[in-house]
Design a protein around this nucleic acid. Sequence first.
DNA 1: TTTCTCACA
DNA 2: TGTGAGAA
Length: 121
Amino acid sequence: MKIGELARRTGVSTRSLRYYEQRGLLTARRDHNGYRRYSTDAVDLVLNLRRLLKSGLSVADVHRFGSCVASPDLDSTPCVPALAVYEQRLRTLDEQIATLTHLRHNLAAHTEHLRARIEAE
DNA sequence: TTTCTCACA
DNA sequence: TGTGAGAA
């Protein structure tokens, strides 16, 4: 199928599909006129890509999934690299949450301090 | 309709 | 991580 049909079948813009290809996430054969041609299983792959990217994974993360991304049923696939990616992502999120929590505590303390000063006037 | 590139959020 | 515009 051509890029327009893949876009329609996946609900993903042609622009995004070209972007995924540029990033090495999606490949296509070329027609004589240079138009991209996709096999029907590209639909599952794109839907998986979309879901993973929307869930906060980066292009590099999705890259690490290897052939798993092409799976028609990603959730039921015992994808070893996916486990590593998810675990690393969880660690990163935990670190970010800790940092934000720290910042929030500091800001709350400053706020209370300032309020007390102002109300003491 | 599709291709590409540049610029931008 | 995408998108818009412009030209072929």
